[in-house]
Design a protein around this nucleic acid. Structure first.
Lengths: 162, 162
DNA sequence: TACTGATTGTCAGTATACTGTCAAGTTGTC
DNA sequence: GACAACTTGACAGTATACTGACAATCAGTA
């Protein structure tokens, strides 16, 4: 012994649940040709119109490289627009197109159904407890991720203004 | 409204937790040059010496393509050996090398520490409840994954022996 | 034994998700 | 204004994770 039982390990079970959640998403939303991340990015842009890629990365909790890929796909599908920022010419400002806005609304019920489907095996009371623990684990472990959630003005590290 | 709040969505939080779990694993086990999946595959081979790739894929709950990649990396690191099956010449039988066995044992404490670290933000009682729900979600949603867990003799579909 | 159907591992293709590095641009300090 | 420190988006590289297709092989039946 002395070695971990794979099928009881938190890390393994979390990977499996993520795998299942993605499969449910893809099955339920097949009409819209969207991935979970693409939908999340659309939501992020919808909530923060005109934001730059780094802000979006922080909002959906991804690194800049990955968001660049996602954003490129969304742009090639004409769901978002990307234009260079006027104040800061390093940035690209992101906005939904009409098609993007329409797709977010259209896919919304299916995406909602996925969220319910994931938790369906639990009784309602268990669901609430599970979600509370899940939120707690994510929030309190936030900084351990290489792409932690950062909202609005939050700085990654205090700016070296000594 | 009518649209999902991203930061409260089960699917989003599960992705975040998986992201965090991987980051913790990589940080804690950096001495061993292993990924979570590579470690899982080593454990699977350790538990099922001489198994073929499809059995291993079922054991760790991955599709055959992904396991092929993982196994190729493990072989190139000389942690496992792959030899054509005698009875069934389509298969490749998998075994740990001495180095592989040694590495599993050596990394074991660190991997165990990761499992604890993931759940650290919860109180012990909450941990047990969370793990019970997690197991339940994974087991009852198993078939929704494209790579469901299958143990030993379990058939994907009843064999067409009509 | 020939045939049909299923399975095995591989391959190409797509989409995350990370690391590290880089040029271009911005900001704070002197 | 010059300079250093930093940020932004891009790129190359690696590792999951999936789909669908394929040749080789195997198993059951006629």
């Amino acid at each position: 012994m002395a070695v971990l039982e794979l099928h009881a390990a938190p890390g393994h079970l979390i990977r499996r649940l993520q795998q299942i959640a993605v499969a449910l998403f893809m099955a339920e939303t097949s009409d819209y040709d969207l991935t979970p991340l693409q939908y999340a990015a659309l939501l992020g842009i919808r909530e923060n119109p005109g934001c730059d890629q780094t802000s979006l990365a922080n909002y959906v909790a991804l690194d800049r490289s990955t968001i660049a890929d996602v954003v490129a796909r969304l742009e090639s599908k004409a769901l978002i627009r990307r234009k260079p920022g006027a104040r800061d010419r390093r940035t690209k400002r992101l906005d939904l197109t009409a098609a993007g806005r329409k797709l977010v609304m259209a896919a919304s019920p299916a995406v909602g159904a996925v969220q319910d489907a994931i938790l369906a095996p639990l009784k309602p009371a268990e669901r609430a407890v599970f979600m509370a623990s899940l939120r707690r684990l994510v929030h309190l472990n936030n900084e351990h991720s290489r792409a932690p959630l950062r909202l609005n003005g939050e700085e990654s590290r205090p700016r070296k203004t000594a």
